[in-house]
Design a protein around this nucleic acid. Structure first.
Lengths: 273, 273
DNA sequence: CAAATAGTGTCTCTAAGACAATATCAC
DNA sequence: GTGATATTGTCTTAGAGACACTATTTG
């Protein structure tokens, strides 16, 4: 009869390499809302939702655009890995991450067995402005649009200057209201990143309904109209200011500061509750 | 100057092993609702929420109870791996899986670098009954309770016969209404499985609010009272039947069948819409 | 004052919660 | 009939959406 091993004996002989292991990555969909200045000094600016994409310099998918991301290291969590990667690529450390999903389909990466952990991060416009022109990098902010077409497919449009990417996806209902997408045309995006972006934007929109994903787009103090415009930009809807103010009042605290010099009545500044 | 490689050349020389790789597992919190028969033939039975735990036969955490799970294989997704493992352990293939989270803290597994993908699965009582006494296995269904105490900590109680496990956790708020828990006492549960169970139950309860996670506990045809009792059991609340029926009516379709021989008025059977 | 945004008041309609009342079976 | 659950109706209240109206700034 075999002698019983102690735990330390067992662990010292344990070979964790006896099972095959995948490479593990974290990929980040970093969102920002940028305002486009208006010609009329009185009128408010228009806002656009953008995400960060990186042009791949190496195979596979060389010269395609991809999400920032990288391989997990042994001393970090997947969340830490995502933060590290977005800091390296964008020069900005986001305050928070939202898990989007795990993408582990065999064959999703031509290099081999790679499973990706996708996160959405929200970055305020002011922090992007501070970093400004990191021209050495080939990371760029793409305006993003995502709409369901009349044929039941959804179209994901990404635009930066003259570069236009256009992916087509099919929404597939899964259990538990997790919306999942299948890529029909990836439109110049690397790997399954069109699918990841669509999933991340869906999660962002879901979180915008209850105001959760709005505040990180703005500085600490903001006006209610700014907050409303964030929600409208993300969800691609219009709401009446009076109703928005009433509903959001539970989530904000007013300060005693006001905006200045806007050409119209000053607005009270609020903080998140 | 170095010659440009073609993609196939690049991939053939690519060594995916140059970065360290973790072991990857899927762990499953399999929920079932079991009814305890009543002495009075007229009165409805009481229901209890249970999860499947496996007694570990090997180090580490030998003789502790753990979630069913296992290592990811190269030809499957993490969802497939979870389905395969729960089928092996419980003899039941659940109809659906709900992603709960990724647990990748360094040091969470004494054997080495292991990151776990946790899923919740919902199993109907009838399919458990069909499998019945798989006595050879050391997998058992534990009644589960999870309540916030007066000191702000939450107590997770698991009970099977005379075996009682009792873990204490602290709820830590994170961004985006993702509730996260820290384990204060793991109460005989292996690894960080107390944390995973608490997270899974929180997700199950959240899904029970909008009826998403209710139907899989029941057979295809069910009464509205049965459905109501599922919600009450999961969320640990009481609701008025009239209001429950009104709200849930959007999610169900009535059939032309009725219950029989219950000692009181028969109930119409419904299907999920 | 004109233009533009900031902010308030209120009307209507819907949905949720509470609760009363009726229906129907097995015994 | 009795005891249990099934099912319907309605009262009240809270909240969402629509919209009219007032307030305040810069040029």
């Amino acid at each position: 009869m075999k002698k019983q091993q102690s735990e330390s004996e067992y662990l010292s002989q344990y070979d964790i390499g006896k099972y095959p292991r995948p490479s593990v990555t974290a990929d980040i969909v970093a969102f920002v809302i940028r305002s486009v200045e208006n010609e009329n000094y009185k009128m408010d600016s228009v806002s656009k939702l953008s995400i960060l994409l990186v042009k791949r310099a190496v195979h596979p998918f060389r010269d395609c655009w991809a999400l920032p991301g990288g391989f997990l290291r042994p001393d970090e969590t997947v969340e830490n890995c995502a933060l590290r990667e977005v800091t390296e690529e964008a020069g900005i450390t986001p305050v928070s991450l939202m898990p989007v999903g795990v993408f582990s389909e065999p064959g999703r990466d031509p290099r081999g067995w790679v499973i990706s952990h996708a996160f959405a991060s929200i970055i305020s416009e002011e922090s992007v402005r501070q970093v400004g022109g990191d021209d050495a990098s080939d990371a760029e902010w793409f305006d993003i649009r995502f709409e369901r077409g009349e044929d039941g497919n959804s179209c994901l449009s990404l635009e930066y200057g003259d570069t236009k990417l256009r992916a087509v996806l099919r929404e597939e209902e899964t259990h538990f209201s997790q919306t999942s997408f299948r890529v029909l045309e990836s439109g110049g995006l690397a790997f399954d990143h069109a699918r990841i972006i669509a999933t991340a934007l869906t999660a962002l929109r879901e979180g915008a309904r209850n105001y959760e994903t709005l505040f990180d787009f703005l500085p600490e103090r903001f006006t209610l109209t700014e907050l409303q415009k964030v929600q409208e930009t993300i969800m691609n809807i219009q709401v009446l200011p009076a109703n928005f103010r009433r509903k959001v009042s539970d989530y904000v605290v007013e300060t005693d500061e006001y905006t200045q010099g806007a050409g119209h009545r000053p607005a009270k500044l609020y903080r998140r509750k």
